[in-house]
């Protein structure tokens, strides 16, 4: 098996007061080592449930979630997570926030080496000089960048990003997209990105998975051709526009607003 993350035939339901609520039914996602898969789908279709499965915070009712060919049975330390809410700890400096995972995960780094690595990551995302600041002194985009560094500090095998740029304004978001490419080049990771933004999905990922409405199954998979270094200009090429149209159509299908099949 050469897929680092392998999700096959996953079914999951939450128990609610009015009986079980199925959220996932027939979910398949494969991410090869070093791959970056974006997952898009209608609101409330169970995308966040997917991240909790990969993180081991949730065990599916049926089907299999494995990382490195090993079935996930609980949380492991080799996962990094970032959410729409940056959830930085207000009482810590940015540097200490980034170092937080190393206080939980066993590490070979000495204190000085860890701090050195944290500084390097912060500088990679353009936060030099902010190490000693408190989260309340940073803008939304800066907090999100710090949150990204925290997710990467322990060199996790899997990076899970759950709409990390969803609450940012359009310009800040595009900034962060480019930073993501820089980070991926310097600190290679295998990632799953949950997003609502189709442009974001084709700009960042090498594969886009469209989920159907609830209960979600894998409805459509789009491979993004490798065109070397991606710039924002790529989003305005005819190829990119065609991919966006395909994805938009698939989302409409998932929402039940368009019949399946290719758009006219």
């Amino acid at each position: 098996m050469d897929n680092l993350i392998d999700i096959r035939g996953v079914r999951h339901a939450y128990s609610t007061a009015s009986g079980p609520l199925p959220v996932l039914d027939g979910l398949d996602v494969q991410v090869p080592e070093g791959g970056f898969v974006a997952v898009v789908g209608p609101s409330g279709c169970g995308k966040s449930t997917l991240t909790r499965l990969v993180a081991g915070l949730l065990i599916p009712d049926a089907g299999e979630v494995s990382v490195h060919g090993k079935r996930i049975t609980g949380p492991r330390s080799n996962v990094g997570m970032a959410f729409q809410n940056p959830v930085l700890l207000e009482w810590r400096t940015i540097l200490d926030n980034v170092l937080l995972p190393l206080e939980i995960v066993p590490t070979k780094l000495t204190k000085a080496q860890a701090a050195e690595r944290a500084r390097k990551l912060l500088s990679l995302v353009g936060l030099d000089g902010f190490e000693g600041k408190r989260p309340s002194e940073l803008s939304g985009g800066m907090k999100q960048r710090a949150s990204l560094c925290r997710a990467l500090i322990h060199s996790p095998e899997v990076l899970i990003l759950d709409e990390p740029f969803g609450a940012l304004d359009a310009f800040t978001r595009e900034d962060l997209w480019q930073i993501m490419h820089r980070v991926k080049a310097e600190e290679p990771f295998t990632g799953v990105l949950i997003t609502h933004d189709l442009r974001e999905s084709i700009f960042l990922a090498d594969q886009v998975v469209v989920l159907s409405g609830r209960p979600a199954r894998t409805q459509f998979v789009l491979d993004i051709p490798d065109t070397g270094v991606r710039t924002l200009d790529h989003l305005y090429t005819p190829e990119a526009v065609a991919m966006l149209n395909t994805l938009r159509h698939q989302i409409e299908v998932a929402q039940g607003r368009a019949p399946a099949g290719q758009p006219a």
Binding site: G74, I104, H154
Partner: peptide, 18 residues
């Protein structure tokens, strides 16, 4: 306490007391 705060540490295998 927002669930994300818990998830950040829980996903790394931290205990409830941590």
């Amino acid at each position: 306490l927002e669930p994300e705060y818990r998830d950040i540490l829980r996903s790394l295998g931290a205990s409830q007391s941590t």
